[in-house]
Amino acid sequence: MARATRNARNAATGGRPDGRGGEAAVAAARRPEVRLPPLTPYGGGLEPDGDYDGLEFLGADLTGQRGRGARFMDCALTECALDEAELGHARFIDSVLTRVRGVGTDLAGAALRDVEVVDARLGGTQCHGASLERVVIKGGKIDYLNLRQARLKDIVFDGCVLVEADFGGAELTRVEFRGCTLRRVDLSGARLKDVDLRAVAELDIARGLDSLSGAVISTAQLLDLAPAFAAQLGVRVAD
């Protein structure tokens, strides 16, 4: 009970012992600076351990393609279909994914570094055990995103909708949520450091309230979460 009380207070104050949150209470995420070179149009499929450098995938249908372990460097994937694409342990470096769509895309154990994801429409994406560093996810909607045991560092979620995202056991460092809708999020066992939730438009945490230590929320959000914190503590609230 003492731990849950301490976590609730830390979530509201940014973990500062003086109880003052403020802008200095959380370190800002470092954003990627992606500058793509002139790209070569690519119309082929994917291969396991394939090497794709400086290519433009425009409107490509990659449904069910097997690209496990592939490397994408300085690439642009625009309006591509990724339904059930096998991209486990793939690497995306200095790349931009725009309006990609798909259900059941497998990115388990993948590595994304200096990547922008814009207006994606994805469902059931498997990113468990993945490593994300300096990534911006802007706009779009992602349902049932599996980030269990993933490592997220310097990540910005900007204006996107996440429905039932699973961060169970994940490690989040310098992660910002800006104008996002977070519905039924699972933070069970997650480890948070400098995670900024103050600008979230809708915050709904289904599980893992006791993992909020290391996050910063607003006073209004604390009031909204008060019933859930009370339930976590086993406190009954009555008029």
Rank of each mutant, 00 (worst) to 15 (best):
A8E: 15
A12E: 12
G15D: 08
P17C: 07
D18K: 08
A25Q: 06
A28V: 04
A28Q: 11
A29S: 12
P32V: 00
R35L: 11
P38H: 05
P38A: 12
L39T: 04
L39G: 03
Y42T: 09
G44H: 06
G44N: 08
P48R: 11
G50L: 04
G50T: 00
L55I: 12
E56L: 14
D61F: 05
L62R: 05
L62T: 12
T63Y: 03
R66A: 10
G69T: 09
F72W: 12
A76L: 15
L77C: 09
A81P: 03
L82K: 02
D83L: 05
E84A: 15
L87C: 03
H89A: 09
R91F: 00
F92R: 02
L97D: 10
L97Q: 08
T98W: 02
R99I: 01
R99A: 13
G104W: 06
T105Y: 01
L107E: 09
A110G: 10
A111L: 12
A111M: 07
D114I: 08
V118P: 04
A120C: 09
A120W: 08
R121T: 14
L122R: 00
G123S: 14
G124V: 09
C127L: 15
C127R: 02
V136L: 05
I137N: 01
K138V: 09
I142D: 06
Y144E: 12
Y144R: 14
L147W: 01
L147F: 10
Q149H: 13
A150H: 05
R151D: 07
L152V: 02
K153I: 02
D158Q: 11
D158C: 11
L162E: 07
L162H: 01
G169E: 02
V175A: 07
E176T: 13
R183Y: 09
V185N: 00
A190N: 02
L192Y: 00
D194W: 00
D194K: 01
V195I: 02
V200T: 04
D204V: 01
A206V: 01
D210C: 08
S211W: 07
G214I: 12
I217N: 02
Q221W: 09
Q221M: 06
D224Y: 00
A231K: 10
Q232G: 10
L233Y: 02
R236Q: 12
A238Q: 11
A238L: 11
